[in-house]
Simulated assay, not measured.
Amino acid sequence: MRPVRSAARAMLASIFVVDGIRTLARPDSRVEAVRPLTDRVTPLLERTDPRLPTDPRTLIRIKAVADVAAGLALATGRFTRPAAAVLAAGLIPHAATEKGDPDHLLRNLGLLGGLLLAAVDTQGRPGLHYRTSHAIDRSQRSVRRAVRTARRDAKIAVAVRKLPG
Rank of each mutant, 00 (worst) to 15 (best):
D137F: 00
G100R: 06
S139K: 09
A89F: 07
R5F: 02
S14A: 14
G77Q: 06
T76I: 03
A146G: 13
E98F: 05
R26T: 13
V31G: 01
R145I: 05
T97K: 03
E98V: 14
L117R: 06
R61F: 00
A25S: 10
R61Q: 14
L91M: 14
T23C: 10
K155N: 11
A13S: 07
T54S: 08
A7V: 04
A95N: 12
L91K: 00
D101S: 11
R107V: 01
D121K: 10
P27K: 02
L12T: 13
S6I: 15
L72G: 05
M11G: 14
T76P: 01
L106T: 14
P36F: 02
D19Y: 01
G110H: 04
R26E: 13
K63R: 12
P3L: 10
T38D: 12
V68A: 06
L59R: 08
G90L: 07
F16G: 09
L44H: 04
M1D: 13
T149D: 08
R144T: 13
T42R: 15
A135H: 06
L117D: 11
Q140Y: 01
L45Q: 05
R152A: 13
G113N: 08
V120C: 04
D19R: 05
L109W: 07
T149S: 11
V34A: 09
R57C: 03
V65S: 00
A150K: 08
V160S: 13
L106K: 11
H129A: 15
F16K: 07
I136H: 10
G100E: 09
D28W: 01
A157L: 13
Q123D: 15
T48H: 07
S139V: 14
Y130P: 00
I136R: 15
I156G: 01
E32L: 12
G100I: 10
K99W: 11
R35K: 15
H104G: 14
R47T: 13
F79N: 06
P102Y: 03
T54P: 08
R131P: 02
L91G: 08
T54I: 07
E98P: 00
A13M: 06
T48D: 05
P53C: 10
A119F: 02
L44V: 14
P27F: 02
F16L: 04
V34G: 02
V143R: 04
L24I: 02
A70I: 02
T58S: 07
V41W: 06
R161L: 15
L37E: 05
L116H: 05
A75E: 07
H104Q: 15
L128P: 01
Q140C: 05
L52I: 09
P53E: 12
G71E: 05
L74H: 03
K155M: 10
D101G: 04
T76Y: 01
S142K: 06
S142M: 09
T58M: 08
P43F: 04
N108M: 03
L163M: 13
I92F: 03
K162C: 05
L45Y: 08
T80Y: 00
R144G: 06
T80H: 03
A135R: 12
L45D: 04
A69H: 02
S139Q: 11
V34Y: 10
L117A: 14
T42M: 11
P93I: 08
D55T: 02
G110R: 05
